[in-house]
Amino acid sequence: MIYCKSLIFFFVATVLFGLSHFSGVEAETTRYKLEPDMIASGVFVFWGKQESFSRENGANIVNTGFIVGRDAILAIDTGPTRLYAEEMIEAIKAVSPLPIRHAVVTHHHGDHAFGIQTFKKNNINILMHPKAKNLLAEEGAVLFGYLENLIGLDWTTGTEVDLPTSLLEKERMIDLGQRPVLIIPYEGGHTPGDLVIYDITSKTLFAGDLVFNGRAATIPHADISTWLDHLDTLEKQDWESLIPGHGPLLSKNQALDSTRTYLAFLRETAGAAISRGTTLAEIMTTVIPSPFDQLATVNSEFLRAMTTLFRQLEDEQFKSSPSTK
């Protein structure tokens, strides 16, 4: 019993210490220290950390980047906060004096879209899929509140949810000066309106969150079946390097299996549980099988994914079952 009590107090102490430790982030740490990584001639990536949102990383968990043409620059995604976007623009300017003319926001999730306001202030054309724009308008405030809770005001101060300046529903070519870049919409996969950026010159594909590498995919706005189809299409595209929304670079010889098998696992796990009558609490307390247990952030993302899928599937199940009033 004494032993048991020690354990409990150790737990309580850990929780208390953990909380007090979280409560203060010193001002000096509120810089992302973004460093562009040149992965091909004229193609740069700011690699995000393989972590969840935290007060330590300020949501720098996402891969953003830019492509430099002869006349202009195109940025890919805007990052999670005003601070991030400002640092990103600063870092791009340190690489090239050319104007940043466009920023393509791959989808409406905050880690990709909350820097829009800063790019807009710099007179940069911001492109988004219309469905993503609508979702950002509808859910942006809620998503931002959620982000602010997790990373803290030190990072989010001055960030305001803002909307794109132009919309793109069909594939479009943007020429940066002897550097044609394709913007390709992929609807209804990771979110209703994702955009993918393909640099024809270097055969680099910025896939946004349609591809997660070594990290648990997030699915709150996803349609898994369509997403799996999109992965097949993406895999067949002629790219040398693929930059996932989260996780390290993929080379041509690497298939998109990390995302594909995890999505299939989520769908099967939730589907089997719903049809057997297994409860959400039962599923959430089971052990995540190998190899998925190796994915970064899988413990928290698995809980989120099961919650989302359970709600959808349970609702369908009840609707197809006897119901009376």
Binding site: R276, G277, Q317, F318, K319, S321, P322, T324, K325
Partner: peptide, 11 residues
């Protein structure tokens, strides 16, 4: 007050 229902044999 709508009641939806599902039964699982051996569940």
């Amino acid at each position: 007050g709508e009641i939806a229902f599902k039964q699982f044999e051996n569940g």
